[in-house]
Each structure stands twice: as C-alpha cells, then as structure tokens.
Amino acid sequence: MKRRHNYILLALISLLPFNTFAWGVDGHRAIGRMAEQHLSWKAKKAVKKLLGNESLAMVSTWADEIRPEAQYLYTAPWHYVNAPSGLTYEQFSASITSAESANAYTALVQLIEDMKNPAKSKEEKAFALKFIVHIIGDIHQPMHAGHSEDQGGNKTKVTLRGKETNLHSVWDSGVIEATRMTYSEMAEEYNYACKNQVRVWQRDDMMLWLFESYQISDKLYKEVAENPELGYAYTRSHRDIVKERMQLAGIRLAGILNDAF
C-alpha cells in the first residue's frame, strides 16, 4: 500500500510546473555567497550553530537535491508561484495568499516562523533555514513566478542556440550557463549595491519580490511570442536582469536572516 502511495505521489509530482535548479547550481551558490557577505555577526553565529561547517552557498541547492525523494515530494510546490496573466499587484497578492495549495510564498512565511520558533528543534530549524536559502533564490528567478496558463513557462516552447527547450528551462539554466562564470566569480561581480540600496531592498515586502518576478516574466513571455528562436544575443541582452535578480536575492536573504536572528 505504501509503495502504491509513493507511485501516486510521483505521478502527481510529474505534472507540477517546475524544473530543477532555478539559476542552476552555480547561481544558487552565488546567491548564498552574496548573502553571507551581508550577514550581521549575530546572524553569522546563528547560521554557524545550525549548519555547522556548511555554508549558505553549499546548502543552497539542498532543497532541489532531496526533492525527488518520496519523503520530500510534498515540498515540490514550495519552489514557485504561478498566477494568471495580467494581474495588478493587489490581484496578484490575493491570488497567491488565497491559494488552496502550498506555494513558495506561503511556505516561506511558515519556514521563517519555524526557524525563529524556540520550540523547534535544531534539526527542524536547520531544515527551515536550508529551504529559506533556496526558495528566496527561486522566487527571484522570473519564471518561478510565471503564468499558471503554461505552468510557469514550461509549456512555452522555444529554441536556445538551435536546441529545443522551453522558456522556464532557459531561465533555470541557459542564461546562467551562458555567463561561463563560477559561483564565486558571480558573487563577486554581482554584489555591487551600496549600503543605502541594501537597506532599501531589505525593507521590501516579500510579496513585492514575487510581483517583480511576475512582471519580468510577462515581458519575457511577450519577447518569445514575437521570436521563439533564441541565440547568444538573447542571453547577452538579458544579463543585467540576471545580475540584478541574483543580487536582490542574496541581499534580501541576508536581510531575512539578520532580522530573524
């Protein structure tokens, strides 16, 4: 009976609108590395207590690595939000907060509470922290806040440098791979905000983070509707979006951890 239950879960999970590793392994690790550079000393101490010798960069991909395991299949919807196209901020917010099933926003709110909850065990808090690091990276990838009509870009077919793929995959890995940079190099080059800008970004509401991605995704959908054949010029012309979204993710992640600890 248990085996049958797992098969059913696996079948359902295959229908969900996600690909693996938003921003790729190096992208997630770059975000973790940038966040480490903006942590307060209290937050650094708390993170060390929960993660031991593991860094935020190294745990940033853990949530994707364990996702195929039967015991973690329930976490699959935590990696993204999808909403109908053409929504205002108020409509978008209502759509995300009123969703019947879990999503990245509702999961993130709960995980932050779990991480701060003194009644939770060290293991439970570490679990929450690892997911927080990953989810904040995910939701700054525009297609992780894409349209529900096509499962966040998974059904929008395109070609990238002659190879058939979809819009979600292009932004999960294609734009990062095109940089040909290590995560350490990205963390150094993309971490250029001044202190005042850091403070402003860290005060932004989490729903705004998602709406930013949603608005960018709308632009990306319109571009590929006009031309679905993407080449090197596409990844070059969108590099500034990649830089800003990854930098925002790292800085805002640090802000959440500084506030929590």
Rank of each mutant, 00 (worst) to 15 (best):
N117L: 06
L50N: 02
D64L: 04
Y89L: 13
G24N: 05
G137Q: 03
K222S: 07
S148Y: 00
S217D: 09
I132P: 03
L210I: 14
H147G: 08
M34P: 09
L230C: 14
L208M: 14
Y74P: 01
E226G: 08
L160M: 07
H28G: 06
V109S: 05
K222R: 15
S173C: 06
H144L: 13
W62T: 05
T235N: 03
Y190L: 06
I241S: 05
M143I: 01
S55A: 04
R161T: 07
W209R: 03
A107R: 13
K48M: 04
Y105R: 08
L208Q: 13
A104D: 02
A30K: 01
S173T: 14
G162N: 05
I241D: 04
E65P: 01
P77H: 07
W209L: 13
R252I: 12
T235G: 08
Q197A: 12
Y183E: 11
H134S: 13
V170N: 03
L208D: 14
K44G: 08
E185N: 03
S98K: 12
A128S: 14
K2H: 09
H28T: 03
G27D: 14
Q202W: 04
A57P: 09
A83N: 05
Y72H: 12
K2G: 10
R3P: 03
A70G: 01
T156A: 11
K116S: 11
A254D: 01
K44Q: 09
W23F: 13
L73C: 08
H134W: 01
A11Y: 09
L56G: 02
H144F: 06
Q141T: 04
S121W: 06
K243I: 12
T20H: 13
A30E: 09
T97Y: 08
H79D: 01
M58S: 15
T61W: 00
A35R: 07
D205G: 14
N196Y: 04
A126L: 09
L160H: 00
R161G: 03
S184L: 12
W171R: 02
C194Q: 05
Y190I: 00
E149H: 12
Q37F: 02
A249D: 02
Q247F: 07
T97E: 14
G32T: 09
Q141W: 00
V224T: 01
H140N: 11
A83T: 10
L56P: 01
W41C: 10
F211S: 01
W23V: 00
D205Q: 12
N227K: 13
K2A: 08
S60H: 12
M58L: 11
K163L: 11
D114Q: 15
S60L: 05
T97S: 12
S14T: 09
I13S: 15
G174F: 11
G24E: 10
K157V: 13
